Computed example of a mutant assay.
Amino acid sequence: MQSSIQDLGRPGYGRFGIPPAGAMDPWSLQVTNALLGNPAGAAAVEMTLAGVKARCLAPSVVALGGGEGEYFLNGQRVAPWQSLALSPGDMLDVGGISRGCRVYLGVHGGIEVPVVLGSRSTYLPASLGGKEGRALRRGDILRGHPCEEKHISRRLLPSLRPVLADKAELRVLRGLHAAFFPAEEWERFLASDYTVTPRSNRMGCRLAGEAVKARSAGNLISDALVTGAIQVPPDGEPIILGVDRQTTGGYPVIAALVTADLAKVGQLPPGQIVRFRAISLAEAQELKEKQAKFLRSLSLWGKETFICGR
């Protein structure tokens, strides 16, 4: 459906109207890179709903992380969350994603494309970064670093892999404009099941379901936006802003996802059921630190063959 090169994005340019871009599921990107001994932010291929078929041109070690699906190496099914040694001529086929929405193809050493404003990420609306600023297409050649360390063999324990539930729970804090929503509307927002619509993309995850209505905000002045902010347009159906979001906006923000749950949005396919749960700022900070501690621990993994654990 759409594949592009992404890393952890280019933060710090919002004042120039440039969003961060980067991986929609940064947790999966970082773990995939750890399986390869790469820096956490090395560039990889982000595939949405369906993947690519790629032929290996040089000795390589690759890994797949993210959604679940049917993935094949030379016609033999392979599992995600492990490193795979490839030889010239090998064919990797990443088919449809059956659970989740995105999968990441990482390569030992990372994918080499020009750095633009400190990042290799593709921002498609402005044709910025990545492979000539566009999505990947048939015939593209992606260059990494030939791998001589074929003994690298790593996998993530099943107990540490993300659970892709039929109903996703997203934890939130009250948003910048929560005061514009009466108490009953806030409760409606938390009590309702929403469905991800096919109009969703990297800019925003659009939801269908119980409408929530703000009090008249008058001439609401556009405010700065962050990834994970949940805007409510006039139709009352929330939009969760993604990494390609606009940098400012005038729709009221009822809530914002906690940092630890931002990666979940990257795995919400059309039709997915979503429910929100409010937590405290202290809980959100604790979740953020717990996730960051786990990701930091990945840098301690050695280069010898082993099974990754806590």
Rank of each mutant, 00 (worst) to 15 (best):
I5D: 03
D7W: 09
R10C: 08
G14N: 11
G14W: 09
F16P: 08
I18N: 00
P19C: 02
P19F: 01
P20I: 05
A23D: 08
P26I: 01
Q30P: 00
V31A: 07
A34S: 12
G41A: 14
G41C: 10
L57V: 12
E68T: 09
E70G: 05
V78N: 07
V78R: 13
W81R: 07
Q82E: 11
L84A: 06
D90P: 02
M91G: 01
R99H: 14
R102N: 01
L105F: 06
V107E: 03
H108I: 09
G109T: 09
G109Y: 01
P114Y: 06
V115R: 11
R120V: 02
L124W: 05
P125F: 00
L128G: 13
L128C: 06
G133D: 06
R137C: 10
R138E: 13
D140Y: 00
L142C: 04
R143N: 14
K150C: 09
H151D: 14
S153V: 01
R154W: 07
L157I: 04
P158V: 05
V163G: 00
L164F: 02
A165I: 01
D166V: 02
R171Y: 04
H177K: 04
E187R: 11
R188Y: 04
F189L: 11
L190G: 08
A191D: 15
P198I: 01
S200L: 05
R202G: 07
R202E: 04
M203Y: 01
C205E: 00
L207R: 02
A208K: 14
E210T: 11
E210D: 07
A214H: 11
L220D: 03
L220E: 10
D223W: 03
L225C: 12
T227V: 15
G228V: 08
V232S: 12
P234T: 03
P238K: 12
R245H: 10
Q246E: 13
T247W: 04
I254F: 04
I254K: 06
A256R: 15
A256N: 15
G266W: 01
P269D: 02
I273Q: 11
S280V: 03
E286C: 14
L287I: 06
K290F: 10
Q291S: 08
R296F: 03
L298E: 05
L298F: 10
L298W: 09
W301Q: 15
G302R: 07
T305Y: 06
F306K: 14
